[in-house]
Design a protein around this nucleic acid. Structure first.
Lengths: 233, 233
DNA sequence: GATGAAAGTGAGCGAGCGCTCAGTTTTTTT
DNA sequence: AAAAAAACTGAGCGCTCGCTCACTTTCATC
């Protein structure tokens, strides 16, 4: 996995696995990680982060102890501190992973890639749901643990949400200009689509219970939104 | 405030203040609360709960220490334990308050009160946003701290969400039967309205930043939903 | 397979946590 | 205003937490 190359190519949602994210994090945090070899460090870092996401989902990050992480990851407490110099850093790593995924999968899908506003909006919706489906625990963690972050990290999550909203608002504005969408403030319409996208990783319990797949959900959201923003005849 | 009477009358959203909820909680938890006089106990209980909601919003409930609560509420640590025999009980009290508010303001608004499906759906949306506007911190706490609850409490929150969805789905089903709404599974449509309602108390920072009032949000959601579920011509 | 480097181990530390209780203050009753 | 009841106080207890480090094991290189 050559990270330099992927940064130029932009990864598609399906290529953004936890392993890929952990490789990126391993490099990005090399200053604080004491382990040097990637072939050892990346799989172990992934064990630690997946354990943190898994336990954090059930108990919350603050209730997740380093002893929990050691047991769940199969590493000793001392080994964990070769990768993460504090729980705070672990939080930042996970956040960096989510940032990277959004940067790779959603942001590049702008006007250059697709001119038609309806298709562009559909693409943004589809990519958001697809990437958050694969990285469900990462996205849910960032959303639900936002209170645990410091101000800088918290703002970066909120800015990321606003940027995604703005990408959708751009497509909607274009559709309004072409007379195919209803003439309402684009940011306001985009703000009503965002929670529908986030619901896919926040309410997983509900969708699983109803045997809904991500593909079916993408379709349902797109149809719902299409009707809501279509210009009335 | 006579609770027996209000349980028969059903309170409207605007009457469901934190003070009212704390009075109800004070009675409901009289077995574990050592303070007996309501005129002393209810205001103090409210100080404790509002402190827990306020600190919990910023740091999360698990990072909220009993010393934090003592300082913020103006009571000593010992006094707090006259009201709450453990942090776990405090969690249950807040949840009981939210349950009561939903029970009072949203659930009674069913077919008996309003026959027209469109108006019934509008009423459910409006009441949900209104009550969660007044009790914003309570609702946000229940949503974001759901992981901190035990299984029984967690299930009760999820069941409450499903019940609210079902109320909306009933109105939608009626509208479909009358040929005025699009013929799609009512529960699926209701599931796409729910996150729009929850967004009002989860993303308060965003709406405040945009100077949006709850009245304007109610209108925006109603219009958005109306277009999305209207039967195509 | 010897040797130095890299990585892993887990008992133990200081700090801070939830919670208690013997004593004090305030309120109510008479 | 004295007596009894109700409510409040905060230092301190036992425990668990995040984190460390002297030591052991594993790996890479020749």
């Amino acid at each position: 996995m050559d990270v330099t190359a992927t940064q130029l190519l932009h990864l598609r949602p399906r290529e953004l696995t936890s392993a890929v994210l952990c490789a990126v994090i391993f490099r990005q945090f090399s200053a604080t990680i004491r382990v040097q070899k990637e072939h050892v460090g990346v799989p172990n870092l992934e064990r630690i982060i997946l354990a943190a996401l898994d336990i954090g989902r059930r108990k919350g990050f603050h209730s997740t102890t380093t002893r929990d992480l050691a047991e769940a990851s199969g590493l000793s407490m001392g080994a964990i501190y070769n990768y993460v110099d504090s729980k705070e850093t672990l939080l930042r790593m996970i956040l960096a992973g989510v940032d990277y995924a959004v940067e790779q999968a959603i942001v590049p899908f702008d006007k250059g890639e697709q001119d038609d506003p309806t298709l562009r909006l559909h693409g943004l919706i589809r990519r958001h749901i697809e990437v958050s489906d694969i990285l469900q625990r990462w996205f849910a963690f960032a959303f639900l643990e936002i209170k645990s972050f410091d101000k800088v990290a918290r703002d970066s999550v909120l800015q990321s949400e606003l940027r995604n909203e703005r990408l959708m608002a751009d497509a909607i504005a274009e559709g309004i200009a072409r007379g195919i969408f209803i003439d309402l403030p684009p940011m306001r319409l985009a703000a009503m689509i965002m929670p529908l996208l986030q619901d896919w990783y926040i309410k997983r319990w509900k969708f699983r219970q109803r045997d809904m797949t991500s593909v079916a959900y993408v379709e349902a959201v797109i149809n719902f939104v299409d009707r809501a923003i279509a210009r009335p005849m």
